[in-house]
């Protein structure tokens, strides 16, 4: 959509202002991460020279290497699980007639509405029980970190909205070809869902990357702890070493940013195709 010449500056002026507001706290973080402690104590704006050593120090002291690996593995498991579960659940909610559909959907949404502070205890009880009664370990292992979040109501909601927008003719012709629901979902719908799935995957990834209280609860050793735990140890530690804290924060943010950068085009598309119709 072209714009008439004279208004270009208005558009970019507005965008620039918004960009500045969105970007400047991060810029502040970035700048602070390159300072010496003296500079950050004196509250200067710009570091005299870039202290790359801060990153090295933060990386080593917070043991980010290990946490990075954990976070990645957890993210992969959780994202794939969430995608599969949400896809399967969204399909009947969007495209099938069955008794209790609205109740199920309302129930799914209701799970969004209770604060985490009070869900943490009962969920731990459930995990403990599973840990004792299942053939594999849940605590201190990936199941406790990922499975409770695999059926996110948000993901199901988003995918359902998307699937509702797909023309019925597709299903009709598939049925004439003798396809059942399973084949229709995985052979015809799945390729169409690429973009919204990426979207859901991205949100899941961000969520898993930043989770903190729950991972600490279900692990006792760093073996399965994600990067946010490493960052927390760093940010809360006494000594007010703001420059190192900020370096740690930047390190923890970069992977998410990178992922977003790589998929952002399709990510946006994913939301647009869902149309978010009610």
């Amino acid at each position: 959509m072209a714009i008439k010449g004279g208004k270009t500056w208005l558009v970019y002026g507005g965008l620039g202002l918004g960009g500045l507001a969105a970007g400047f706290p991060f810029a502040w973080m970035l700048l602070a991460s390159f300072m010496t402690r003296g500079e950050s104590l004196r509250r200067v704006f710009l570091p005299e020279s870039l202290q790359w050593g801060n990153y090295l120090k933060a990386w080593q002291e917070a043991d980010f290497g290990l946490y990075f690996e954990n976070s990645l593995i957890i993210a992969v498991i959780q994202v794939s699980g969430t995608l599969l579960f949400s896809l399967l659940a969204a399909y009947p909610l969007a495209r099938m007639e069955f008794r209790g559909r609205d109740t199920v959907f309302a129930g799914v949404l209701a799970t969004l509405m209770i604060p985490e502070t009070v869900t943490i205890v009962p969920n731990f009880l459930t995990i403990t029980w599973l840990h004792r009664n299942m053939p594999f370990a849940w605590l201190n292992n990936w199941p406790a970190m990922t499975i409770p979040f695999m059926a996110s109501a948000f993901s199901i909601f988003l995918l359902r909205q998307f699937m509702r927008g797909i023309p019925n003719e597709l299903w009709d012709s598939a049925r004439i070809d003798g396809a059942g629901h399973v084949r229709f979902l995985f052979q015809i719908l799945l390729p169409l869902c690429r973009a919204p799935l990426l979207t859901v995957g991205m949100f899941t990834y961000i969520g898993s990357w930043n989770a903190l209280a729950w991972p600490l609860l279900v692990t006792n050793t760093p073996d399965w702890r994600p990067i946010s735990v490493g960052l927390q140890q760093f940010v809360s530690e006494a000594g007010a070493e703001v420059h190192l804290q900020m370096a740690g924060a930047v390190i923890a943010t970069v992977p998410v940013l990178l992922a977003y950068f790589l998929i952002q085009r399709e990510f946006t598309e994913g939301i647009s195709m869902s149309g978010l119709k009610g």
Binding site: A89, V108, F149, H181
Partner: peptide, 13 residues
């Protein structure tokens, strides 16, 4: 289709 997600949602939601 719903079962996997519902099991998780009922259990943890």
């Amino acid at each position: 289709f719903l079962t996997p997600a519902l099991v998780v949602l009922v259990g943890f939601g």
